[in-house]
Every structure is written in C-alpha cells, then in structure tokens.
Amino acid sequence: MRFHTRKWIKPEDLNPNETLFGGRLLEWIDEEAALYAIIQLENQRTVTKFISEINFKSSAKKGDIIEIGIEPVSFGSSSLTLRCEVRNKMTRDVILTIEKITMVSLGDDGKPKPHGKSEIEFVKDRLENS
C-alpha cells in the first residue's frame, strides 16, 4: 500500500473526547480516494459510489501525524475499487481500514462512462510514452 497523504491532527479536527473526529477523517479519505481515481481514470468527473464497512481500530489525538494509504483492488468497466488504511505515521498503529471504496467515472451526461483501464498506471510512465 502506498501512503500518499499526511495530516497533522489539529484542535479543530477533534471530537468532544479530544480524539480525531471520525467525520473529518472520512472527509480526508473520500478526497484522497477521489484524487487517486481521477488520476488513474484520467477523468475529473469521477465520483464516490460505495464505501464498505469502516473499521476504526484506534484513535488519533492532537499533535499526531497520520498518513492515508490507498491501493487498487479492481477495475470495473466504469469503476475503480480501492482499499484504504490510515495509520499513525510515527508509531505505525493502524487507525482505520476500509476494504472497498468504489469510484465511478462519469460522462458529460452524468452517467457511468467506460474508462478502458485495466491496470494501475503511473503518471511518469504516461509522460515517457507521449
């Protein structure tokens, strides 16, 4: 799994228990999954269709640095399914896992659009081939 994004937990990210608010973390995960899928599918009109069970394993507190990891699970004709893990950067303790986040590529009409992808591509490889 590749960990692309780090977040520093600040006071405004906390719940009344003084730990990371789950809704804030889910916002960050949804944005990370969207960016990953948009880059892979080469379509800015990519949306979240499904998020499976969210498993909170531990918490984070003010001052912690967390990192969000995303990895591909499978490609559909118009979708990309991802897996996510969030962990504490310093201790490597897992904070959360999500087994499936399905992102769908849309056409201009707002309906699912086939993307023609079947494997992960890296931008550097696309640039070398152009």
Rank of each mutant, 00 (worst) to 15 (best):
C84A: 14
V47P: 06
P72L: 13
V73S: 15
T48K: 09
R24E: 13
K10H: 09
L82S: 06
I68L: 04
A60L: 03
F56E: 02
Q44E: 12
M90C: 10
E27Y: 04
L80D: 04
E12M: 09
N15A: 05
I54Y: 07
T81F: 07
G69P: 15
S58P: 09
L80I: 09
F21W: 13
P16V: 09
N55D: 06
I54K: 11
K89D: 10
G63I: 01
A34V: 11
L26I: 02
V86H: 03
I51E: 09
P16T: 00
N88K: 02
F56H: 01
Y36G: 05
I38Q: 10
K89G: 09
T19Y: 03
L80K: 04
E18W: 11
E67L: 03
F21P: 06
S78H: 10
S58N: 12
L35K: 12
I38Y: 09
L14V: 01
K89Q: 09
E85F: 04
L96K: 07
L82D: 08
R83D: 14
S74I: 07
G22K: 04
A34P: 04
I38L: 06
S59P: 04
I95L: 03
I38P: 06
F50C: 10
E31Q: 12
E85V: 11
V47L: 13
G76A: 12
L35R: 14
M90E: 14
G69I: 15
F50A: 12
P11F: 04
K61Y: 01
L20Q: 09
I65G: 02
K57G: 02
E32V: 15
L80P: 04
P11M: 05
T91C: 05
V47C: 07
E27V: 03
K7Q: 10
D64V: 03
V86E: 02
I95P: 01
S79A: 15
Q44A: 10
N15E: 05
V94M: 07
I95K: 00
R92N: 15
S58H: 06
L96G: 12
A37W: 07
S52Q: 14
I95S: 01
R6M: 12
E27M: 06
E85W: 05
V86D: 00
C84D: 06
R87F: 03
A60Q: 00
Q40M: 11
S78Y: 07
G22E: 06
D13N: 14
F56S: 05
F50H: 14
N17T: 12
S52A: 15
R45F: 02
I66P: 06
P16K: 02
P11L: 03
E27I: 01
R87L: 01
E31F: 09
P16L: 02
E85A: 08
I39K: 10
D13G: 07
W28T: 13
E31I: 13
N88V: 01
Q44N: 13
F50V: 12
